[in-house]
Write a protein that binds this DNA or RNA. Structure first.
Lengths: 140, 140
DNA sequence: ATACAAATTGCGACAAATTTGCAATTTAAG
DNA sequence: CTTAAATTGCAAATTTGTCGCAATTTGTAT
């Protein structure tokens, strides 16, 4: 797998979009800080770019498949899509609120595909969230 | 299975929460109108209760497992949890926007539980959304 | 390199969604 | 029926998301 940054540039080029400082900043923030709320993302970027640009950039990124939205808890979160990091699902702790990635499970993936096909559905992508208590919060 | 309304009262009691008119109203609205956006829910209730109370009630309901949030497209929707209606997952057609329920698949359910436990996580509930094209839209 | 056209950004305003404090009301329990 | 605690409505504040437009930056072709 090539460098994520390089891949971003190529993806932008493929869509005839400019490679700008703002886009790099948002991308890097997403790369470094896992799934984030938009508010968090804005906080990470606001030293160099405007709120409105963060909105515009993430909307753009989503439309070209660079980021995906997760509805986790009350607010949605954004993370890089499977093209930029390994496909995974999420464990959401209802007590402490943290969201962690779940290792990929081929058997699970297959069941999902099979279930969709059984209804004549052509699956393109999917999202799984398991809510419960993380190891730490079970102890407490 | 007993009457949903009765079950709600019991659930509230179990959590030492009052059984109030506002909570009954919100619950009934959810029971009658499938998965709804918060804006819709407010519209259904605003004749008798305040916007702020709808927010407070749904947040409470979510915390005690009476309602769950679904990601359908960009906005979330609320529906009664599996304790109040049959457990199911969602197929979301990206072309026509319809959302249909997926038949329960025990093998899939088991994989999900196993995956969570492998991380020391205590699963309470989960949610799956598969996005793609429904049978109709594939033809078109 | 330089110049130019097109794409992108920042900067307010704005509109919509969600949250909060607090006084008034309702509820559960005795 | 009384009373303390929980819940609600109301209004105001905050947070989130959009929009138009002038100023800047980018990609491309000299």
């Amino acid at each position: 797998m090539e460098e994520p940054q390089v891949k971003l540039v190529k993806t932008l080029a493929r869509h005839r979009l400019s490679n700008t400082a703002a886009r790099t900043t948002v991308f890097t923030a997403l790369l470094e800080h896992g799934p984030v709320t938009l508010a968090e993302l804005i906080r990470y970027c606001e030293a160099s770019i405007d709120r409105a640009s963060v909105y515009r950039t993430t909307a753009l990124f989503e439309s070209i498949g660079v980021v995906q939205r997760l509805q986790i808890g009350w607010k949605y979160r954004l993370e890089l899509s499977d093209d930029f990091q390994h496909h995974h699902h999420h464990l959401h702790c209802l007590s402490c609120g943290t969201v962690t990635a779940m290792p990929e499970d081929p058997a699970l993936e297959n069941r999902l595909k099979a279930a969709a096909k059984a209804k004549g559905f052509l699956p393109q992508d999917h999202q799984v969230e398991i809510r419960g208590l993380c190891a730490n919060c079970q102890a407490a």
